[in-house]
């Protein structure tokens, strides 16, 4: 069988480009740290559930597993394997 590495090399270059762009963005974001320092006494709202990156981790976990198969999508969530119930 033909290996997809040789079959779609241009896509690999694009993926690598995306990852490099992400790395650059991470670097830019990290450089903000010097001017973005919120004191502990002012972090009350940042610790509230509705200010979290995952407001309800269990709900997010169920969705990242279930959504791809219900939607029939490949890249819509972080779920990457683990069976589908389908």
């Amino acid at each position: 069988m033909i290996n997809s590495r040789s079959y779609f090399p241009h896509n690999l270059a694009r993926i690598a480009g995306s990852v490099l762009a992400a790395g650059a963005a991470v670097g830019m974001l990290a450089s903000l740290e010097g001017c973005a320092r919120v004191p502990q006494r002012d972090r009350e709202f940042l610790s509230d559930p509705i200010m979290q990156r995952q407001e309800d981790p269990m709900e997010s976990g169920l969705e990242s597993h279930d959504m791809p198969r219900r939607e029939g999508a490949v890249g819509g969530s972080s779920g990457s394997g683990g069976g589908c119930g389908c």
Partner: peptide, 14 residues
């Protein structure tokens, strides 16, 4: 990264 007492940003690569 928290930017202000009411602002949080995040970046994820997979």
């Amino acid at each position: 990264q928290s930017l202000t007492p009411l602002t949080l940003v995040g970046l994820t690569g997979t």
